[in-house]
């Protein structure tokens, strides 16, 4: 598995503009091609159908933008991470760029295992900014928020309240909420949060999401939360090899 022989690395990347309409799978293919263009020394899995050892964090819905996507990959040898960040960014489709990289400790938990919370900024329509405050307040005050969720093609009623870790209005003049959702026991979708807002207030019946940006992903360890580039770093990583940018405003 990870780190058996190779050099594990974690990347953070962004997805903005029209390219937000490509799927998670398409993103993976874009990276595979970019890695080949820059001739990155990728480690391959063994077996009948070898494939590069690259794994991604939680999928981003088609149409959502992101400041904070992550992937882990394994190289066959050390490379200059700073140069790699620039080269890979150049080889990616317009609107996607790598914004940070860190060397990972051997046997670090995967992103899928590690990520515990996702942060989004959600621009809403169908509600005046002034009316949004009471809706958000009602949601936060509620002990339970029941919405119809679709899981594996089946509809069921779920209480999503406990999966919403934080909900706020950063700028009262705008119809924008920032929300943080848990990935356990399962990842809550932004659409379900919007359904929840509609459910808690009759004023919010016409509310719809317009632009969604994933702003953060978090890994919780003990009681502390970390940016995924900052945990499981290799202790002997060469100085200056990381270039984690500010973890978003």
């Amino acid at each position: 598995m990870r780190g058996d022989a190779g050099v594990p690395v974690r990347l953070r990347f962004t997805k903005h503009g029209p390219v937000r309409f490509i799927s998670h799978r398409d993103v993976a293919r874009a990276f595979e091609r970019a890695f080949r263009i820059v001739e990155l020394p990728l480690a391959f899995s063994a077996g009948f159908s070898p494939h590069p050892k690259v794994s991604f964090g939680p999928a981003l819905a088609v149409g959502y933008e992101s400041d904070a996507e992550y992937l882990d990959l394994e190289l066959t040898r050390e490379v200059d991470l700073e140069r790699m960040v620039d080269a890979v960014s150049d080889a990616l489709p317009e609107g996607m760029a790598v914004t940070g990289a860190s060397s990972l400790a051997d046997r670090a938990p995967s992103l899928q295992e590690g990520i515990t919370a996702l942060g989004y900024a959600v621009e809403l329509v169908g509600v005046a900014p002034a009316d949004l405050g009471p809706v958000v307040d009602a949601f936060v005050a509620a002990t339970a928020v029941e919405v119809v969720v679709t899981r594996k093609g089946e509809e069921r009623i779920d209480d999503i309240r406990s999966s919403v870790l934080a909900l706020a209005r950063p700028r009262p003049a705008e119809a924008v909420v920032v929300v943080e959702v848990a990935t356990r026991p399962r990842t809550l979708r932004v659409a379900d949060v919007v359904n929840g807002l509609r459910a808690v207030s009759p004023d919010a019946a016409a509310l719809e999401e317009r632009r969604v940006v994933r702003t953060h992903q978090w890994i919780e360890r003990g009681s502390a939360r970390h940016e995924p580039l900052d945990v499981d770093r290799r202790s002997d990583a060469p100085e200056g090899a990381t270039r984690a940018l500010e973890a978003c405003a």
Binding site: P18, V19, F21, I22, D26, G63, P93, E94
Partner: peptide, 23 residues
């Protein structure tokens, strides 16, 4: 026409069919 097409793409299957930007 992008500003008028973009909002429609959120409602259709495989919206990336219409964005261009291929290498």
């Amino acid at each position: 026409l992008w500003p008028r097409i973009e909002p429609l793409l959120a409602r259709v299957e495989k919206p990336a069919r219409y964005i261009g930007m291929e290498r």
